[in-house]
Design a binder for these strands. Structure first.
Length: 553
RNA sequence: CGGGGCGUGGCGCAGCCUGGUUAGCGCGUUGGUCUGGGGGACCAAAGGUCCCGGGUUCAAAUCCCGGCGCCCCGACCA
């Protein structure tokens, strides 16, 4: 198929928009792929929508290949479904009301709706089932941005599996996981399949597909030897060994006037920062104060704390700290604290300097299980000085985009919504579910992040808006058209730049738009009947006869 | 929610601090001439509620107050 640039709505920009920082944001806007309507709300222009559809088609083929069935569920959703699963209080949820006063939500995902339909599954004989759709999602994000990376409205391919039991779920989960690996591979992306944090979906196990990128919102932790990779929110890596002073029989209070930081404390006492502990009071939804304790040189990973507690928490403010500890931040510690204490595993062995819960004083020789009774959990954020838990190798940290996320949901949705089936033992049981999401827009953004140069986008072949971009220079319009027809006959989608523009402008646009092949017909072609075929990725160029184009492509 | 920045023709910006004729510049757009393998040159022209509302003033893009929108950095997710 041939598309003529002269008739295409393709507004390319010479300069990037002032508010764009991420490479994908700049290039997709400059290349005329997308335009912003409001924060996190975008239109796909003709070129951008072509790319989106190519991503969709790859996803569709891989879903169909594992027996997942396409359908379409609605955007407007009665709030009752979300009330039944108790997700109606989620802050990101858009709510609206019709003229009769009936409440609706715009779905964050479609677990509720698909489970509503799954109530029609009656018997184990109908299982397993896998369903999917490409549906709009709406999320009232606090901070949308970075082009297509964080959107308030977007198309998601969400798939759902229904099984009799955990073993069946495991099988469905692995089928989806395999499909995801193939999808990202076909899209030409580098991704890592890593353990993740289930967040608001709930459920037992989840895995993220993280794609390293210049701009992103996740941090991927990997081992130099390739035997470890995880999202930093769940990464458990090995902290460096602390250097401890001589142990004490019991804690000893010491004067530490003016010292409110770990560095100041370690310096005053001439000890390793890793031989201190850091108290970070948090409050739960119902106002209880929980003390999170990590080693002095560590940072608390809040996602891990929330996971350990099983509920979200917020850092306590000064008033709450005073009330619970009788001291201010900087002198807090576990000894004598009445509430719940969660300590990082790094504090299990050894004696640490901790706040004394009296301003200007600390305790030396504080030992877990002797001087205070904590629950232990992994709370620390992986640090650059950590080593691989599997081989001791050095770790690397990269920003990454989450392009896919798959969850084992279990009965989190089927139970509240009453989606049950009759098993072969004659008993009624809730369906065991999984859910599997991919954002095509993020795949687009990731492809650009991972593959571009100073001149523009270098699309992976499978995602390019057109396979070939034929540049017609003045005088050679006829040859250009013949070349385009040859390529089209060979099954390629062709963009024919027949605009009345200067050569430089056409080349610049071709580089910016980033189709894999560029074919130029110009004055030289009139002499020898050949055209220049240039590979966008490598820059390699060769002169070919028009007749040879088909087989070359 | 906390912090920072911005809002002026389609795009990128200047002007604002220190109010004062017709609000400028580059790019783009339209018409013309010459050009024509990496964003060319010259001539002519079109195009603006200076984010919105209020206030101060003889006079507001400019000063004050209040909104709204957008971007970036810390707590959420495909």
């Amino acid at each position: 198929m041939i598309t003529r640039a002269s008739q295409l709505f393709l507004p390319t920009l010479r300069e990037p928009p002032a508010d764009a920082e991420a490479a994908s944001h700049q290039l997709l806007v400059r290349g005329g792929f997308i335009r912003q309507v409001a924060a996190g709300i975008w239109t796909y222009l003709p070129l951008g929508w072509r790319v989106h559809r190519r991503v969709e088609q790859i996803v569709r083929e891989e879903m169909d290949a594992i027996g997942c069935q396409e359908m379409l569920m609605p955007f407007l959703t009665p709030v009752e479904l979300w009330q039944q699963t108790k997700r109606d209080f989620i802050e990101e949820l858009f709510r609206l009301e019709d003229r009769k006063g009936t409440d609706y939500v715009l779905p964050l995902t479609h677990e509720e709706t698909v489970t509503f339909h799954a109530r029609e599954i009656q018997s184990y004989r109908q299982l397993p089932q896998m369903l999917y759709h490409f549906g709009l999602k709406a999320r009232d994000e606090l901070r949308p941005g970075k082009g297509l990376i964080r959107l308030r409205e977007f198309v998601m391919k969400d798939a759902y599996s229904f099984d009799r039991d955990e073993a069946g779920l495991e099988e469905s989960f692995q089928r989806q996981r395999g499909a995801y690996v193939r999808i990202f591979e076909r899209c030409g992306l580098v991704t890592h399949d890593v353990p993740a944090e289930p967040g608001m979906m709930g459920g037992s196990e989840s895995r993220d597909f993280l794609a390293p990128a210049g701009a992103g919102e996740n941090t991927l932790v990997t081992c130099e030897n390739g035997d470890f990779a995880a999202d930093i929110e769940v990464a458990t890596t090995t902290p460096r060994q602390a250097v401890f002073p001589e142990p004490l029989e019991k804690p000893e209070e010491i004067e530490t006037p003016e010292v409110t930081t770990i560095d100041g404390l370690a310096e005053l006492l001439s000890i390793d920062t890793a031989a201190t502990s850091k108290a970070m009071p948090h409050v739960t939804q119902d106002g209880a104060v929980v003390l999170a304790l990590v080693r002095g040189d560590d940072r608390l990973e809040e996602a891990k704390l929330a996971a350990a507690l099983g509920e979200p928490v917020w850092p306590a403010d000064d008033d709450a700290i005073r009330a619970a500890f009788g001291a201010s931040g900087g002198s807090l510690g576990p000894v004598g604290f009445e509430g719940r204490i969660v300590a990082d595993f790094a504090l299990r062995d050894g004696q640490f300097v901790a706040g004394a819960n009296r301003d200007g004083r600390h305790l030396r020789g504080v030992q877990a299980d002797r001087d205070y009774e904590p629950e232990f959990a992994d709370l620390r954020e992986s640090a650059a000085t950590d080593t691989c838990p599997n081989c001791g190798g050095a770790l690397g940290f990269q920003t990454a985009i989450e392009v896919g996320h798959i969850f084992k949901l279990g009965t989190r949705y089927s139970e509240p919504l009453g989606a049950t089936f009759l098993d072969d033992d004659g008993r009624e049981k809730p369906l065991v579910m999984g859910s599997y999401g991919i954002g095509p827009a993020r795949i687009m953004a990731t492809a650009v992040e991972q593959s571009h140069d100073e001149n523009g986008i270098v699309w992976p072949r499978a995602l390019a808006p057109y396979d070939a971009h034929v540049v017609a220079l003045p005088g050679a319009e006829e040859i250009a058209l013949q070349a385009a027809e040859m390529l089209a006959a060979a099954g390629l989608d062709v963009l024919l730049d027949d605009r009345d523009q200067r050569a430089g402008e056409k080349f610049a646009d071709a580089d910016l738009i980033g189709c894999p092949l560029r074919v130029t017909a110009g004055r030289k072609s009139l002499e020898d009947g050949k055209v220049d075929v240039r590979d966008r990725a490598t820059g390699d160029e060769k002169r070919l006869n028009v007749a040879e184009l088909g087989k070359e492509a």
